[in-house]
């Protein structure tokens, strides 16, 4: 694995925050869970009652944070509304991947692993590379976390190929999430902002959700023995920070923001060009959208 960049070190430091007193989401996260489990699940919630309390708390906190006039993100969102704006309507988060921008740098991969303490051999996010050869072959591989060159992979002769592009993958935070539907104990649940989360304190580790996710983003974490997956860095976004991968991307190929706000950067970018979701026919209604998705990507 490459050394985390400075940016990533900042991310890691942020996640190691000891928590402040009572009034911020950071506290909700840190007080309720040990740092390591917290890193794998975002907020950790111990049981139904606690979860309800937590969700109430998180909603209050998030709405409270929205009323703040100075938002940490405002510099990136030029409108200052992406994750904020104290509207009474519920916040709905969304994610955009611009495959036309992605250069396969792999910074997001390391950022995610460090931020969320993802065990080796498992991934919360990955980047696929599609190569269309002139002879009609399509090859797919995965961007190594250290980047293609550091991994010692040979260059492909550009004479041989028609086109090539990268497709980052992560949890789609489906509106009709099959993972959530099949979980026998409510350990997979939806946050008020529509983020699919896992309560590692009640997960029985049956792996039914792993089977049910059509996108292969779930796994049973060998350290917590509970289901695990991308949370869009819930512990960060509830503090008005970007997910670690979004922050790490050098070319803005990953955009996180509010779907319910027509003025958000996310919606403005989505409005300009055709976009798709993965495996639409399955009716999962992902909140992760792709720009420039080719037909062979599934």
């Amino acid at each position: 694995m490459v050394e985390p960049s400075d940016e990533l070190k900042i991310s890691k430091d942020r996640s190691e925050c000891d928590g402040c007193d009572t009034q911020c989401a950071c506290n909700a996260t840190h007080d309720l869970s040990p740092p390591d489990t917290n890193l794998t699940t975002g907020p950790e919630i111990s049981n139904d009652a606690d979860r309800r309390n937590f969700l109430k708390q998180a909603t209050t906190i998030t709405l409270g944070a929205l009323s703040l006039t100075v938002l940490p993100w405002s510099r990136d969102n030029d409108d200052g509304k992406n994750v904020g704006g104290g509207s009474a309507t519920p916040i709905v988060y969304g994610f955009l991947v611009d495959t036309e921008k992605c250069i396969g740098a792999g910074k997001c991969l390391t950022a995610c692993r460090v931020e969320n303490d993802v065990p080796e051999g498992y991934s919360r996010t990955w980047v696929e590379r599609y190569i269309h050869y002139k002879d009609g072959r399509v090859e797919v591989d995965r961007v190594p976390e250290s980047g293609y060159h550091a991994a010692g992979l040979v260059d492909i002769d550009s004479e041989l190929i028609d086109r090539s592009y990268f497709v980052p993958k992560l949890c789609n935070h489906c509106e009709d999430a099959p993972c959530n539907q099949v979980c026998p104990v409510h350990a997979s649940f939806t946050s008020p902002e529509g983020v699919e989360l896992i309560d590692t304190d009640s997960c029985i580790g049956c792996a039914y959700c792993v089977q049910a996710c059509p996108y292969g983003v779930r796994f049973v974490n060998p350290n917590t023995n509970s289901a695990d997956k991308c949370t869009w860095c819930y512990h960060r976004i509830t503090q008005n920070e970007k997910p670690a991968c979004v922050e790490a991307c050098p070319v803005d190929a990953r955009v996180f923001g509010r779907l319910d706000d027509p003025e958000s950067e996310l919606n403005r970018r989505l409005a300009k060009v055709p976009h798709h979701v993965l495996r639409e026919h399955l009716g999962t209604h992902p909140k992760l959208h792709y720009i420039g998705l080719s037909g062979e990507v599934n």
Partner: peptide, 21 residues
């Protein structure tokens, strides 16, 4: 089960939409 000690959750906090519950 990776958490067999929590097996009874399946009857204590069953999820009505889950076939497994």
């Amino acid at each position: 089960l990776h958490h067999p000690e929590r097996a009874f959750n399946i009857m204590i906090t069953p999820n009505a939409t889950s076939a497994m519950a």
